[in-house]
Design a protein around this nucleic acid. Sequence first.
DNA 1: CAAAATTAATCAAACGATTGATTAAGCGTA
DNA 2: TACGCTTAATCAATCGTTTGATTAATTTTG
Lengths: 215, 215
Amino acid sequence: MEKDKIDKKEHILDVAEKVFADLGYDGASTRTISGEAGVNMAMLNYYFGSKEGLFLAVFERKINSFRTLLQNISSDGSMNAWDKLDKCIDNYVERIIANNCFQKLINREVSMNKRGDLTDKIIEILMVNVYEVKRIMEEGVNNGLFHADADIPLVIATLFGTKNYIVNMPQISSLVLGHDIRDEKFMENELKPRVKTYMKRLLKAYLVKEHDNSK
Amino acid sequence: MEKDKIDKKEHILDVAEKVFADLGYDGASTRTISGEAGVNMAMLNYYFGSKEGLFLAVFERKINSFRTLLQNISSDGSMNAWDKLDKCIDNYVERIIANNCFQKLINREVSMNKRGDLTDKIIEILMVNVYEVKRIMEEGVNNGLFHADADIPLVIATLFGTKNYIVNMPQISSLVLGHDIRDEKFMENELKPRVKTYMKRLLKAYLVKEHDNSK
DNA sequence: CAAAATTAATCAAACGATTGATTAAGCGTA
DNA sequence: TACGCTTAATCAATCGTTTGATTAATTTTG
């Protein structure tokens, strides 16, 4: 049936996304992916033409969900810059930290930079989110809510970099935190709220003028 | 002569470091490395036992110098926790941001969790440095210089994560910063002091009690 | 010192294993 | 039967590694 076909392709894409994230593009062999997905090796080429086609399919499937993540927050006139940033942090932590394997995949391919066409596409997508956050922060500076000499580009590097460090190097952050961050319960009940609280307090301490230090 | 022998091994390590960084561990074949270095393929195994041995040799050569530097700072009794951290940031930025291709390599390999033996060794070596920084921060908390409720593990994620973001995704951070960070002059004269200033101000604002906010 | 013995360094060639990809035959359903 | 799906078998290419032979350097010996 048509429905089974779609479900099977989706299943392959799910598995491929995870395997690519774990092993990288080179490290993820077509045999490993097909084996993990429980399908014959030739099915990958049958459905997606080639390994690169499969990779592109994995990537493009995710594009839409990343497009609109922050835009509605940014354009909300009822919030000041800090409240928007607060909301951005909430959404980002909630959404990215939980489903992290695609982020790992993206970061690795961007840092590799040897597959030009694909890398350019990925960067273009990522920049949409980055510019959205940057715009919010600059709004805060212009409104006098944030320090005028705040280094916004580097704050962005901190916001996304801290998140990347946690999700991209789970073994290291697990050791530093004292818990396995791949544990679903710890992630949901402890790490997520903890990262939210930390990130807000950190950025507030650096960005916001005369904020309440006590809490 | 003895000197030539050493120089040759060092030359192979130099080339291997660059090729590994450009192509990744999987992407860098022993043939490419030996070809680029102008030596016979078998020399890699003769000198370093295996491809993995070569990689580890490249890795340990880089990490050792920084490790002793950190330990010297950490054990210096004449500085308080913040001054130590200040010095760590200076050294870290000066050292890592400039020579970044190796850091990209390390982060890429660690973020793949399925190459067990090699990844474990890398993590083990990296953690020495991470724990050193952690120890300094905890010292600051215990001495009452830093806020008692400071989330030290996440501060570490910020410190290393911000750096990683800048050096691992130069295309993105170049766009955010408005300059090509791969430009040597900009990197040395502007980015380095800027990151130092930012990192200290950020961590100070979050960590240190009753610091001077004005500057 | 010089010849012999030993060790270290280097090379081309080939190894078995694995890679991404393709093939032709078999399968189930319409 | 005819068609879309699935499979095992197989392809050439490349992988990291090993081999045996050869040369260069060093040490031992007479």
